[in-house]
């Protein structure tokens, strides 16, 4: 039993070491991406198109709905305590700092995380990755780096859009309950919006983007031979990304409030 435990520990340590090495290599190639001869630029553009542009509609619908819901709940609840003014703080905290990055991450995980993992897994099974290596193309710099950059750029952009649409959705509800001038609404919002809120939202989007991309790439490249491994890679990419994003969210939030 002790032997089995030892072997399992060694295997885990090897996997962790491999995962860390993979992460380091993807980050290195991503940083050097714009300095290298760029045949992967098209991959970057396609990734932004798929992850960012094509997710815009669902992100906007979700943001408007969330903004509206917060306003509906907040306006009735806060009014009971005579704290209606706190509505703007609540909107900023929930949409800009917390839910915006997290829900955007969930959208990207559901759409792009699975797509990246299964696409790469399929390429491994079809020996396409080996074919890239055989012709002298580094799969990390050609396939992984542009995907990571595309996902991160899309996360940041989608987060900004989520904020705009979320606050706009809230404004639309305000017009139904208690009409208020557009400039007054946004002036009140800007009064409570600090640079720290914006930066934390963007930092979370950046971290979540890196997590989603690396986890999905790792799971995709980890497929070995069988096509049955491909959907499993997709499922694992989603599971890992969700878990790591939530853990990172808690840590970043704790840093902000406790630090």
């Amino acid at each position: 039993m002790l032997e089995r435990l030892g072997r399992a520990t060694i295997r885990r340590a090897e996997e962790a070491s491999y995962a860390f090495g993979f992460f380091a290599q993807v980050m290195r190639e991503s940083i050097l991406f714009f300095r290298r001869r760029q045949v992967g630029f098209k991959v970057l553009v396609m990734q932004i198109l798929f992850t960012g542009v094509e997710a815009l509609r669902i992100s906007a619908v979700l943001a408007v709905a969330i903004g509206a819901a917060i306003n509906l709940i907040g306006s009735s609840l806060l009014a009971e305590f005579g704290q209606s003014k706190l509505m703007y703080s609540l909107l900023i905290i929930v949409i800009t700092r917390e839910l915006g990055p997290l829900l955007t991450a969930f959208i990207v995980i559901a759409r792009s995380g699975t797509a990246i993992a299964t696409e790469l897994g399929g390429m491994v099974v079809a020996h396409e990755i080996e074919a890239y290596v055989a012709v002298g193309v580094n799969p990390i710099s050609y396939l992984a780096a542009p995907r990571l950059l595309g996902v991160v750029a899309s996360m940041l952009t989608l987060d900004v859009y989520f904020n705009l649409f979320g606050l706009a959705g809230s404004f639309a509800v305000v017009q139904l309950i208690k009409p208020i001038a557009f400039d007054e609404y946004f002036r009140n919002l800007l009064e409570v919006l600090g640079a720290g809120d914006l930066l934390m939202g963007l930092l979370k989007s950046l971290v979540f983007g890196v997590i989603i991309a690396v986890a999905s790439l790792y799971r995709g490249f980890a497929v070995e031979r069988a096509s049955t491994e491909v959907p499993v890679a997709g499922i694992r990419a989603v599971g890992s990304s969700f878990m790591l994003c939530i853990v990172a969210d808690v840590l970043l939030t704790a840093m902000q409030y406790l630090g």
């Binding site: 390429m123 079809a126 020996h127 396409e128 080996e130 074919a131 890239y132 290596v133 055989a134 012709v135 002298g136």
Partner: peptide
């Protein structure tokens, strides 16, 4: 890689 080529059994086209 420039000086070598590899022909895959299953073509392995992209």
């Amino acid at each position: 890689r420039r000086k070598t080529g590899f022909v895959f059994q299953d073509a392995a086209l992209w």
